[in-house]
Nucleic acid binder design. Structure first.
Lengths: 328, 328
DNA sequence: AAATTTCTGTCAAACGATTGACATATTTCA
DNA sequence: TGAAATATGTCAATCGTTTGACAGAAATTT
């Protein structure tokens, strides 16, 4: 059985109350007793039972993370950063993999509630707004509108695509395609398509949208991309994520298209991983670490002061164009 | 405040005991009462407090996962698979990112203990054996020897490298380098180097080891790889992971070496991600999903029957050679 | 020496749920 | 009709920890 308060008390030769007082630094305590208790705790390798503590109203120091997947390098890096920052602050994370599955996401929300998490960072894309509203828990969201009183953090999606389009135009492209999700759902990522359409108008080129859903299989995406390249002959493609952009590069290679001479591709996300292992890809880089820092900061703020009005609903962080060395 | 048992009882017009009995299906219960209670639970969106339950000796249904990083696609896919399987069985995971940091790993172990996890799946590489021994918790390990009574799951590391070496020889290579970690620490992955050395002897070629640590930075790895390619002119390289193998491909390209004509490279891991986005890479594929299934199965066995003797200490799963289309 | 401050202990209630003991009511079926 | 089975309720203890009330003891100040 695990070591408990009474064991420590016995070992230190004091009462349980005293041990509890030492741990919580509560009331008068002599250095001698404190020392006795601390050494006893160390010797027994005592860990206070978080569960029992939290029943007393103490914080669990537990945060739920809900993301659609972790194998996507963007989410992996974001999650890793969030985890590191939270660890520094004494929080642990329960990782939830919503997998584009509404039911799973719903089940996860219940579970997080049952486990008394202190708050949730939500980045999944499935559920309607309602379920999040009635949780009564501090929540912050990434790139997703959940409810009026859930702050959103996202990168400057609009500026990102604008940068991408301008870069392609400046590189001499004339037939620029937008490759990504076409559906608008009121989320910040909608700005990507909007930016493309606006810039098409501003810069006077005809918009071409090739629709692939984030959730489409690689196979399906490849077919769509293949058709686009073969039938429509774009000379520039703006993609809404790096992985899809790489598929475009691969299909282009198969078709014997020369990159960047015949075709220029720009991705979106700019993870360290893609930049390291696919440095041939130009991309719009999201400030992943800053996003992580801000998400955590906002969440901890809301945890410590849940009723405070939001000073801001939507935090938009700047993006950066990273040009590939081969395209330069 | 969160809904609790008393609220449900009040709503359903029964006693708390009855509600608890309904939830735990304990004793005699009429369908009518069950129904009343269930509807009350739904209407109030009641979630039993896991913490309070676990104080009663109930399982938390929580598993701690300790891995060195999650941005590596291999770990990302393994973690994702483990998570999915555990979710199906009603378990959640606390994700711990040990980050090659001994202190962080130690802190995590304490934290998992304090949070009353039911068991741990360990894949990190930092700590000495001692700390894991005295946890008094069901543990299973991936690719790592932790203690006599912690079962290990790994792929057939030996066979993997053997397959790789044979393939290179059959493809006509004469100067085959081993690129990976040189230190032997008594872990299953040591078999990779061992297999290489053995096969060098069996197949009569001189072994060349180029040492890069798993934890080296990409920059450092690149320098080492660059020097190896430029100074030693290998015609085949066996890598102990796919990411390093890709670095070799990239450096080779920079040096103007033709792959596979001048140089053949084989990686190790075979993640879906690398296979999708670097299909030019031959690799030894680990059966990630099977590893996940087995890890979970063994852990749950140990949780349900902690004192049962292990029938086996080390489970070795078969690997598969995946040849790239370009090399074929 | 008396008053005050500091320290430690005992005791008990609370957190939310579980569960056994026990009582009582209702139903079932010999 | 009466015994047995079924159904529900009351009450209290328990899990490990926190915390307030209260009581003394020891140390410090006046």
């Amino acid at each position: 059985m695990a070591v408990k308060l009474t064991d420590v008390a016995q070992k230190a030769g004091v009462s349980v109350t005293t041990v509890s007082r030492v741990i919580n630094n509560h009331g008068y305590l002599s250095d001698k007793t404190k020392h006795k208790v601390f050494t006893a705790m160390k010797e027994l390798n005592y860990q206070p039972n978080s569960l029992a503590r939290s029943l007393q109203g103490k914080k669990m120091k537990l945060i739920g993370l809900i993301f659609p997947e972790i194998t996507n390098p963007f989410f992996a890096e974001l999650i890793q950063d969030i985890e590191s920052i939270l660890f520094e602050k004494g929080y642990k994370i329960i990782l939830c993999n919503a997998q584009r599955d509404k039911e799973k996401e719903r089940a996860y929300l219940k579970m997080l509630l049952a486990n008394q998490v202190d708050g949730i960072i939500a980045g999944a894309h499935n559920l309607g707004i309602e379920e999040y509203q009635e949780l009564g828990l501090p929540i912050v969201s990434f790139d997703r509108k959940l409810s009026e009183n859930v702050p959103i953090v996202s990168c400057d999606n609009y500026q990102g695509i604008k940068l991408a389009v301008h870069d392609l135009i400046q590189s001499g492209c004339h037939k620029i395609f937008f490759l990504g999700n076409k559906q608008l759902k009121g989320n910040p990522t909608d700005q990507r398509l909007k930016a493309y359409l606006n810039e098409a108008e501003n810069l006077n080129f005809t918009p071409h949208i090739c629709s692939v859903a984030f959730s489409d299989s690689t196979l399906l995406k490849n077919i769509t991309i293949h058709e686009m390249l073969q039938n429509d002959h774009p000379d520039g493609v703006v993609c809404t994520d790096d992985l899809t952009a790489i598929l475009v590069l691969q299909e282009a290679r198969k078709l014997g298209l020369k990159v960047p001479e015949d075709l220029k591709v720009i991705g979106f996300d700019g993870t360290k991983q893609i930049q390291t292992y696919h440095s041939e890809l130009s991309t719009i880089a999201q400030p992943i670490n800053d996003i992580a820092i801000l998400l955590v900061k906002l969440l901890l703020q809301r945890i410590s002061d849940p009723n405070k009005e939001l000073n801001k609903k939507h935090y938009i962080l700047p993006v950066k164009l990273i040009k590939s060395l081969t395209t330069a």
